[in-house]
Design a protein around this nucleic acid. Structure first.
Lengths: 254, 254
DNA sequence: CGCTTCATTGATCAATCTCAACTCGCGTGG
DNA sequence: CCACGCGAGTTGAGATTGATCAATGAAGCG
């Protein structure tokens, strides 16, 4: 079995919890750290114990289902995952990709019209917080709350973005934008960059299709066309944007 | 000029602020009331003054732009509005319809990739809160914060829903679902119901098109087909769902 | 009245899907 | 060690959905 842990190569079971958390990409919202600090901050008064437990999911396996999210809040520590809505005919729509440091869709505790679930794309290491405890901690710590609000705003902004893409953009545009967005998010985590830009790209074309509302077949054609015109190169689960300017033009046109 | 104020027929200028707020449809999140109560609750201590000012926008006019939302939080009191993203080729995507009691997209204070704005569909009466004050009030009042969180969760849930619709559903399904969703939201406010279900429907076909990622022309064809097969009836800015069961079938299939 | 916006309808076009065949790499079990 | 099956990707042909273009009519408004 190939282990694709994104940027973290170490065996998660050998690393103590606090350690892994500290390697966690420095994100605006680094919950693990934030929560530990919260615990730390009040540990003298022994007020808010924020428990967290480590977990692991193999690629292509389900990390959690909607019902699991009622009392637990998972956070991705390593690897890629996706939150997915599945329709009754088994077609799927990816709502968002979850990268290391991302908190699993925060608000998934509403009435479920469709089936939501979180699926591991690569092998994934994650950590589960108790919702009630996390909430309590957040409410007591103003700055933690602020962080959450900011993360929320960003999450919402991305989903608005996706709505526009799905509603008003062509296949080429959607795919190019998806790649650029991922590159940007990865860059923030120090997991992409360079000249030309290069990034881990563990997605199957099926994932791209599910995220862009297209068909795997069509995704293949579009990506081939991108490759043929020298915009990108894909190999070994890694993607290079050869012509960033041209690629941006395709993504933003209109 | 016809005034279509949804369910509120009174001239807003003649009604004192507190009055209008009390007529406001009883919603999970009734900010006007909640905020006034917050003010009330601490008025003895004179701690959190939550100011609010009344405003009015004619149909088809802009209620506010993205940059306005940095320090102010508008709440719809009467009428319908829409929050819209516009692309550079002037095509538009409606992110959500705003009905009385709705708070204008809460998190629109992030980096703007597209141009967002809020546009009045009917004449709209709304109220503006100072963001900083509202925030302070919310942070001090646990239950207010809870209300906000719930409202956000719902907002997020709806936008996830929309993502699935735009990504994976046909024109027929999208349009039927839009109508059913609106009916449901209106029913919660006591603004729709009956047997057969009837609701105010001030939307132009252009709005439906902008919300579903379709063309006005195609919307017209689909709606005509719906009418022809006896599913719905539209007249006088009012819509009746004649065959709720059949309509639901069209909306949910797959 | 004459303008403008909105809706309807038909004809044609284009983007994307569907179906199908084929390849490649990989893991498994005989 | 090899045959096999499976999942992923590629490619082409044809079908479908919805877009585009264009003409027309109806309604609201100054």
């Amino acid at each position: 079995m190939t282990v694709q842990l994104g940027f973290i190569k170490s065996d998660p079971t050998t690393v103590p919890a606090q350690m892994t958390c500290e390697i966690c990409p420095g994100l605006e919202l680094n919950i693990c750290q934030a929560a530990s600090q919260a615990e730390w901050a009040v540990s003298d008064a022994a007020l808010i114990p924020v428990q967290q437990s480590d977990h692991f999911a193999l690629a292509r396996r389900i990390v959690c289902r909607e019902e699991d999210l009622h009392d637990s809040v998972p956070v991705i520590c390593g690897g890629w995952a996706a939150s997915i809505a599945t329709l009754s005919d088994s077609s799927r729509q990816i709502l968002s990709f979850l990268l290391p440091g991302d908190i699993v869709p925060t608000t998934l505790l509403s009435e479920p019209r469709e089936r939501y679930l979180v699926e591991a794309i690569t092998d994934v290491r994650y950590r589960i917080f108790k919702r009630s405890e996390l909430k309590a901690a957040v409410f007591k710590q103003m700055d933690l709350l602020e962080k959450f609000l900011k993360a929320w705003a960003e999450e919402k902004s991305r989903s608005d973005q996706l709505i526009v893409d799905l509603g008003r953009r062509t296949a080429d545009e959607r795919i190019a934008r998806l790649i650029l967005n991922l590159a940007e998010r990865l860059a923030k985590r120090g997991m992409a960059g360079g000249e030309p830009v290069e990034l881990d790209f563990p997605l199957r074309q099926r994932h791209v299709a599910d995220a862009t509302g297209l068909t795997p077949v069509h995704v293949s054609k579009v990506l081939s066309e991108f490759r043929r015109s020298g915009l990108i190169r894909i190999s070994e689960r890694s993607l290079t944007i050869l012509d960033l300017k041209g690629f941006r033009r395709i993504a933003n046109m209109r």
